[in-house]
Simulated scan of single mutants.
Amino acid sequence: MTVSIVGTGQSPYTRHVRAGTDTSRVIARAVQDALFDAGLRPADVDGFAVSSFTMGPDHAIDLAWRMGLRLSWLMQDTNGGASAGGMLQHAVRAIEAGDASVIVLAAGDVMDGAAFAHLVANYNRATKEHLAPLPMRGPNGLFAMLTIRQMEALGLTREDYGHIAIAQRRWAAENPGAVYRGPLTMDDYLNAPLVAEPLGRYDCVPPVTGADAVVLIADPRDGTARARVLSVRSSYNSDQQAGDGLATGLRSCAEAGWEEAGIGPAEVDLACVYDDYPSMVVAQLADLGMIPALEDTSAFIRRRIYTRELPVNTSGGQLSAGQAGAAGGMHGLVEASRQLMGLAGPRQVPARHAVVSGYGMVLYRFGACASMTVLEAAE
């Protein structure tokens, strides 16, 4: 049995949220849009999974009840950037086992100033007890140190990271859902205020309010536009905290993911990787095998990413579209699915295969969770 994504939805991203905006309503709108896109109704849904940092005190079952869903399968994921892959992995297995036939996956948050400040100060025990008391805000300082280490290891410069941010902004210009769509030049990038050296303003993902959703079903036979799930793998590895941070959990699951998919990195036409910082784009592409082991990373960035010869984060990624809390983990899955279904509008690329990766849940130094998904356009 093959499982496919047949619908996607997105609650509009916004940098400045209206007072009183409710997380459940934001997520519900994305779910409604995804079901409409799939030509389905809430009554057709028998499985639901959600990821959110700001839905409390409600839980998945409360949101399902508010949306009028009658379910035989339910899941709530809290693993941030890796949540979409984790939910997808469980949902695929549930459909294969016959536990559900139509599953909606959703993620979203209200990220106003107060919500963001609370999240970065109380992310987990490690953050609350050891990082929050330090004179630094959120993960920027941690990833500034990681970026310096990556620059030294790979011989990268700030211009190399700028090429990534600029390429994604060019993609964002063609995405009406992106929060930042205006031109970004290398001078703009290099002269922007520093946040945590060497990270400048355009290296750090902007928090926004919004939500994303996808609809999964067993592979239809009626010619419905769809993105087939060829493989999905996850890594939850606390040992990453002892390393240098230059390798993500993708390194431990990529080989199995490609083998299950039946294709390799060279056959991928589109990559949507979690991009809270440009250095993490580099790390994930390397761990997925998208950057050949013997190729100079700086040259790869200039030759493949900056020229957009290899489409990377064609929505503009989170760096330009915005990071809607836990929805950041689903942003790439929605974009890859839309591209493979031919629904990406002016930014449409000719793609048959796409890889999507997630990364997140910072413990003491680095993200402890990662996921990869390989998708194929229906013929």
Rank of each mutant, 00 (worst) to 15 (best):
residue 1 M to V: 01
residue 4 S to V: 01
residue 7 G to A: 09
residue 8 T to I: 13
residue 9 G to I: 06
residue 15 R to Q: 14
residue 20 G to S: 13
residue 23 T to Q: 07
residue 25 R to K: 07
residue 27 I to Q: 07
residue 28 A to M: 08
residue 41 R to W: 06
residue 41 R to A: 05
residue 51 S to P: 12
residue 53 F to S: 03
residue 54 T to D: 00
residue 59 H to K: 08
residue 63 L to R: 12
residue 65 W to G: 11
residue 66 R to T: 14
residue 67 M to F: 11
residue 69 L to Y: 15
residue 72 S to M: 09
residue 72 S to D: 15
residue 74 L to D: 14
residue 76 Q to R: 07
residue 78 T to K: 10
residue 80 G to Q: 06
residue 87 M to R: 11
residue 93 R to K: 13
residue 93 R to D: 11
residue 96 E to I: 02
residue 96 E to T: 03
residue 100 A to K: 10
residue 103 I to K: 00
residue 103 I to A: 01
residue 103 I to L: 02
residue 106 A to Y: 10
residue 110 V to A: 00
residue 112 D to H: 06
residue 114 A to S: 10
residue 114 A to K: 09
residue 114 A to F: 10
residue 115 A to Q: 09
residue 117 A to Y: 12
residue 118 H to M: 03
residue 129 E to P: 04
residue 129 E to Q: 12
residue 132 A to W: 13
residue 132 A to K: 04
residue 133 P to Y: 12
residue 135 P to N: 11
residue 136 M to L: 13
residue 137 R to P: 00
residue 139 P to G: 04
residue 140 N to M: 10
residue 142 L to F: 11
residue 147 T to A: 05
residue 149 R to T: 09
residue 150 Q to T: 04
residue 151 M to S: 03
residue 152 E to L: 11
residue 167 A to H: 12
residue 168 Q to Y: 03
residue 168 Q to R: 03
residue 172 A to F: 10
residue 175 N to C: 00
residue 178 A to T: 04
residue 180 Y to M: 11
residue 183 P to R: 14
residue 184 L to H: 10
residue 187 D to K: 14
residue 189 Y to W: 14
residue 202 Y to M: 02
residue 210 G to E: 14
residue 213 A to C: 13
residue 214 V to C: 04
residue 220 P to N: 01
residue 223 G to A: 08
residue 230 L to E: 08
residue 230 L to R: 01
residue 230 L to W: 01
residue 238 S to F: 14
residue 241 Q to E: 15
residue 247 A to L: 09
residue 251 R to T: 11
residue 254 A to T: 09
residue 255 E to P: 00
residue 255 E to Q: 02
residue 258 W to S: 04
residue 263 I to G: 02
residue 265 P to G: 12
residue 266 A to E: 15
residue 271 A to E: 10
residue 274 Y to N: 05
residue 276 D to I: 04
residue 280 M to E: 05
residue 285 L to P: 01
residue 286 A to M: 13
residue 287 D to I: 00
residue 287 D to Y: 06
residue 294 L to E: 15
residue 295 E to T: 09
residue 296 D to K: 01
residue 298 S to L: 07
residue 298 S to P: 02
residue 300 F to R: 09
residue 305 I to T: 01
residue 306 Y to K: 01
residue 309 E to R: 02
residue 309 E to S: 01
residue 310 L to C: 05
residue 312 V to Q: 03
residue 312 V to C: 03
residue 318 Q to F: 08
residue 319 L to S: 10
residue 321 A to Y: 11
residue 323 Q to S: 11
residue 323 Q to L: 07
residue 328 G to S: 08
residue 332 G to M: 11
residue 347 R to V: 04
residue 349 V to H: 08
residue 355 V to H: 06
residue 357 S to E: 03
residue 359 Y to L: 02
residue 361 M to F: 12
residue 363 L to T: 00
residue 366 F to V: 04
residue 367 G to W: 08
residue 371 S to E: 05
residue 374 V to H: 07
residue 376 E to K: 01
residue 377 A to L: 09
